[in-house]
Every structure is written in structure tokens, then in C-alpha cells.
């Protein structure tokens, strides 16, 4: 199923779609609440990116959610070390992803 298409990028309803998608996800209630709150800041571009991500990586939604919370926490506390840790974790995830993508299809 194709969740979004390019025409949707201009659609403010993307945020609503993202909200629905998050609500239907396997995230915990607390995480869903967190996203409900954070979507007040969302933009259609951000929603489009996240919708595409959720479509492609449904198993990594929790990870993305955790990363976002950690980033906000680091920003909140101005914790540079925590911020660097997050960047390192993202690097590791990116590398892992690249390795996975390079595996030959069975």
C-alpha cells in the first residue's frame, strides 16, 4: 500500500494523516501522547518525511520516537554530551541500515 504520494506534500492534511498513522502504530500510549503533543509543531514536510519513513521502516518507529525524545531532552537540558551520544547512535543506525541494504536479496 502506498501511504503517500508526491501530491500530498502540499497537503496540510499530512499532519492529520501522520497523527492517525501514529495512533494506529505499535507505540506505547505515552509515546502516542508525546507525538500528539509534538504534532502541534509539525509541518507538512516533516509529516511527509515521517509518513514515508513509517511506511518503509515500520519496525523502527519506536526507535525514531526515542531519538526525537532524546533530542528534545538534550536541547532542554543543553546537554552537549547527550547530544553527541545521540549523533553517535544515529551514525550507528545509519551504518547498520546501509549494511542491511547492501545484503543480497534472498
Amino acid at each position: 500500500m502506498i501511504l503517500v504520494n508526491m501530491d500530498d506534500t502540499a497537503d496540510a492534511n499530512l499532519i492529520e494523516k501522520l497523527a492517525q498513522r501514529l495512533e494506529a502504530s505499535s507505540l506505547s500510549d505515552d509515546d502516542k501522547a508525546f507525538w500528539t503533543y509534538m504534532l502541534a509543531y509539525a509541518t507538512p514536510d516533516m509529516a511527509f518525511s515521517m509518513l514515508t519513513y513509517m511506511e518503509e521502516f515500520p519496525e523502527k518507529v519506536q526507535w525514531a520516537s526515542d531519538i526525537l525524545k532524546r533530542k528534545l531532552d538534550a536541547l532542554d537540558t543543553k546537554d552537549s554530551a547527550a547530544w553527541q551520544d545521540i549523533l553517535a547512535d544515529e551514525d550507528a543506525a545509519l551504518r547498520e541500515q546501509e549494511i542491511g541494504d547492501n545484503q543480497p536479496a534472498i
Binding site: 516533516m46 515521517m50 543506525a93
Partner: peptide
Amino acid sequence: RRKIFHEALATLMLF
């Protein structure tokens, strides 16, 4: 897939 992954991380950072 890789681009989507990168893009999402960058978007979350901006967000």
C-alpha cells in the same frame, strides 16, 4: 530506503 532513512533523521533533527 537509505535516502528515506537519512531524510527522516535530518527531519527529526530540524523538528
